[in-house]
């Protein structure tokens, strides 16, 4: 066996420092003084090290102001009992008061039996005014500085359905004669890839067809955002900023309550309204009547009439995700 000599020519420390040349086991310590000094230096180094680590990670402790133990331990939405959800909602209401100074009401409406929501949009009459996007912004308590909205309206070139020839940042009177307008929001797919990819089941499809997010369960990995082909998902890159008077107090747990920082969110077809028999905010705001919303299971609904009588298509049909959001033309 080739045992190397303790002091091979390339041992890093052969100088006159107090270290023992890397062969601490084999050679005796250089002397009592040396070893004491070494111990003191080491202790000092260790103390400084710990202090540096504590200092570096100190910002984490400021998080505790906004993240209570109850929040940390909260169970998945589907596993909360009636009492537990009531407790959670009380806490969320208090947080809205403390952090935003707003008195809000957070409900938890359930899907109506036998209802399946569908949305249709008439491209022949949409004029690109973006009132829907604005209404979404206000209704859903979106972050004000980023002017966030679940709806993006594309100005498309006539003769092409290619988004590459579309423009979302148009800034001129609408409608332009050679253009048509295409609002895009969550398509509430029948086979939503965003739900499949979520590692923690923080997002799922409800019985009435609406894909929702449990904002208190999402870990913020943004895999769903990568998986969505419709750019329907949004991430809370920071804590949403909304002045108290602008906060919409009519909120629900799974839809428009103020979202925490670092989680995903998306269009919920305004379920706090639609599950209570009202229409989505974007539809109510539309001045042209281009938007049609209703129950796909109800043969008498307007949305069913559109599907049966108009020339209807869905976006990116080839992906096989079966959107429940339809586009149609009048003539």
């Amino acid at each position: 066996m080739n045992d190397p000599a303790p002091a091979s020519p390339k041992t890093p420390c052969g100088g006159n420092c107090s270290c023992s040349g890397g062969s601490t086991n084999a050679s005796p310590p250089p002397g009592d003084d040396g070893s004491t000094r070494r111990a003191v230096l080491k202790g000092l180094g260790a103390t400084l090290g710990v202090a540096a680590y504590a200092k570096a990670l100190a910002p984490l402790t400021e998080l505790t102001k906004e993240t209570s133990m109850d929040e940390f331990l909260q169970k998945h939405y589907k596993e909360l009992s009636k009492d537990e959800i009531a407790t959670v909602i009380t806490r969320l209401t208090q947080e809205a008061k403390e952090q935003y100074g707003a008195d809000v009401t957070i409900s938890d409406p359930k899907p109506q039996e036998g209802v399946k929501f569908g949305y249709a949009l008439n491209l022949s009459i949409c004029n690109g005014c973006r009132k829907c996007a604005e209404a979404c912004h206000l209704e859903n308590n979106h972050d004000r500085p980023s002017h966030q909205s679940y709806i993006r309206v594309f100005e498309m070139t006539k003769g092409s359905m290619d988004f590459e020839k579309g423009n979302v940042h148009y800034d001129h009177p609408v409608p332009q004669p050679d253009k048509y307008y295409m609002p895009v929001q969550c398509q509430q797919c029948e086979h939503p890839p965003c739900v499949d990819v979520c590692p923690v089941e923080a997002t799922w499809k409800e019985k009435d067809g609406i894909v929702v997010v449990d904002y208190n369960w999402c870990i913020g990995c943004r895999y769903c955002e990568a998986a969505c082909p419709y750019h329907a998902r949004r991430f809370n890159w920071q804590k949403p900023q909304i002045p108290a008077p602008e906060i919409n107090p009519d909120q629900s747990y799974l839809s428009n309550r103020i979202r925490p920082q670092g989680v995903m969110e998306k269009c919920t077809f305004c379920l706090h309204r639609t599950r209570n028999g009202r229409l989505p905010a974007c539809l109510e705001a539309c001045p042209t009547g281009a938007r049609v919303f209703g129950d796909l299971n109800d043969p008498a609904s307007e949305v069913r009439y559109v599907l049966e009588n108009k020339r209807v298509f869905v976006l990116k049909e080839e992906l096989g995700l079966k959107p429940q959001f339809f586009y149609f033309f009048d003539e």
Partner: peptide, 23 residues
């Protein structure tokens, strides 16, 4: 890369919800 790193326990089988094998 996580927005809410301290929620990592949501991924632990048994404790949280582990979306296996779909995700």
């Amino acid at each position: 890369d996580l927005g809410r790193p301290y929620r990592f326990w949501h991924m632990m089988p048994g404790l949280g919800k582990f979306n296996f094998p779909v995700s």
